[in-house]
């Protein structure tokens, strides 16, 4: 009996499955984000923050996704180093590229909100610092991959860095958290501290951004698999032309 991830290990099967899943995910993302945005703009205004509070509906999901994407990177790195899963590196690479974008979105929306609320685009608040460090970690992953020529070696080294990152992230988080001026979490388990009229748009937006993440992630993985196939084909062509290999039928 194969597990789900083992069955996905076959790139061809993954391509079939993702081709069927991708349009649905993209559609779901469009609908949920559209509905979420309408809900967000019809929701009552925050009595202190006014329209600026609407940034939350993009900022909070982006912040979650930035962390979720890193968790995906770490899980994929683990899958590559321990199980040698053939798609793990494709997944790690795609998740890192999407994660860095969501981290950037989170930082930008946060600083746009910070200017009217705190009077400054940036403050060295622990949460901001932790998010910025996460951004640097993503940049490090991407830079390391792009600066090693041998792709298999680059994959392995990036995976090592990904796991080192997930081990040290909690320490970084803890180290910058001495005292915070940031908003307490908008959603937490148990009773939400946020009024239902503001909560539902946030939940919808989060679900929409989540679907968007999955859609982008699948698309990125498909692109990467195709890129590798093209590269392999070209290599065979060159070898055939040089008389080093038999032509494939």
């Amino acid at each position: 009996m194969q597990t789900f991830t083992q069955r996905l290990a076959n790139p061809t099967r993954f391509m079939e499955l993702s081709a069927r899943l991708l349009p649905w995910m993209a559609f779901l993302a469009c609908v949920l984000i559209a509905v979420g945005l309408v809900m967000a703009f019809t929701a009552p205004l925050d009595y202190q923050q006014g329209h600026a509070a609407k940034i939350m509906y993009v900022h909070v999901p982006a912040a979650w996704l930035s962390m979720l994407a890193y968790a995906m990177v770490a899980a994929s790195s683990f899958g590559l180093l321990v199980f040698r899963h053939p798609l793990a590196d494709v997944s790690a690479k795609s998740a890192a590229l999407i994660g860095v974008v969501f981290t950037f979105v989170c930082l930008v929306t946060g600083s746009l909100w910070g200017k009217p609320m705190w009077g400054a685009f940036w403050s060295w608040d622990p949460r901001l610092t932790a998010e910025l460090v996460l951004f640097f970690l993503y940049l490090g992953l991407i830079a390391l991959r792009s600066s090693v020529e041998d792709e298999a070696l680059a994959a392995n080294l990036t995976a090592v860095l990904g796991i080192v990152g997930i081990v040290i992230l909690p320490v970084i988080h803890y180290s910058v958290y001495w005292n915070s001026i940031h908003q307490p979490p908008s959603l937490s388990f148990g009773w939400p501290k946020i009024h239902p009229s503001l909560l539902w748009p946030l939940v919808t937006m989060t679900a929409g951004m989540q679907a968007l993440f999955v859609a982008l992630y699948l698309k990125a993985m498909r692109n990467e698999i195709l890129r590798r196939r093209v590269k392999a084909l070209r290599l065979t062509e060159v070898q055939v032309a040089a008389g080093l290999a038999e032509p494939a039928e």
């Binding site: 610092t129 640097f136 830079a143 990152g165 320490v171 180290s175 910058v176």
Partner: peptide
């Protein structure tokens, strides 16, 4: 590259 990779990992040491 090593500066970009290492500086985030040095944050806890620096901070404390």
């Amino acid at each position: 590259l090593i500066a970009l990779l290492m500086l985030p990992l040095f944050v806890p040491t620096l901070q404390f």
